[in-house]
């Protein structure tokens, strides 16, 4: 008799606890899906948690969201500035390709400026704290990342090709130019797709 009372009481407590757990609507601290860089840096045991003062708490994540917003704002501004520099570099490159060799030094200087701006801007996007939620559906951000894979490859290949060009290697110059146009087009598209 006593045992059945204890059992009934225990079951009641369990039921009430289960009902309350079901009604709990606390936000998860991290999205269910993290990218490789996010896992490395911002997961529960990520580098930012271990090395720097970024505790995985609601207050900590609120600060991370402000940091994320600032970094993404700068990422977007940097994107527009980089696109302007990249476009100028391509125009100068086209003129050099057309025979105006006097512009080669300026083209080269602009190219390295563009490379610097590009990787600074890219790192702002790459190292941001993860968002509050991620469902994995295809979105404009997915398209942005797909295009980023193209222009990132282009930004590795194009400057390298440019630095290796011989004055009289017309075929390689054409490949370099085509690579530059492809990279710029992918970069512009990546920027526009998340802006509008």
């Amino acid at each position: 008799m006593r045992f059945s009372h204890i059992l009934t009481g225990g079951l009641l407590v369990l039921c009430i606890a289960a009902i309350h757990a079901q009604e709990d609507t606390t936000m998860p601290l991290l999205p269910s899906q993290l990218g490789p860089m996010e896992s490395l840096m911002w997961s529960e045991h990520g580098a930012m948690r271990k090395i720097f003062d970024f505790p995985l708490t609601p207050e900590g994540r609120e600060k991370e969201m402000r940091l994320r917003r600032n970094m993404l704002g700068l990422h977007q501004l940097g994107g527009f500035a980089t696109l302007a520099a990249m476009t100028a570099t391509v125009i100068l490159g086209q003129k050099v390709y057309n025979g105006d060799r006097d512009l080669l030094q300026l083209h080269s200087a602009m190219a390295w400026t563009t490379v610097g701006m590009y990787f600074t801007t890219a790192s702002l996007g790459l190292f941001t704290p993860p968002p509050m939620i991620r469902r994995g559906e295809w979105s404009t951000v997915s398209t942005h990342k797909l295009l980023a894979a193209i222009h990132f490859t282009g930004m590795m290949v194009t400057p390298y090709l440019g630095s290796q060009l011989a004055k009289d290697n017309r075929q390689m110059q054409t490949v370099h130019l085509a690579s530059a146009y492809t990279t710029t087009a992918a970069f512009a598209a990546a920027l526009l797709v998340v802006t509008f």
């Binding site: 609507t25 936000m27 998860p28 509050m132 939620i133 469902r135 979105s139 951000v141």
Partner: peptide, 29 residues
């Protein structure tokens, strides 16, 4: 009672931004 993060606009990035604005860690529902 609806959990704020149960609202789906078809774009997680936008929803994440919305959750930031709504201070979802403080006010999750």
């Amino acid at each position: 009672k609806a959990s704020i993060d149960s609202f789906n606009s078809g774009n997680s990035n936008r929803d994440s931004h919305t959750l930031e604005i709504l201070d979802a860690f403080k006010y999750p529902s």
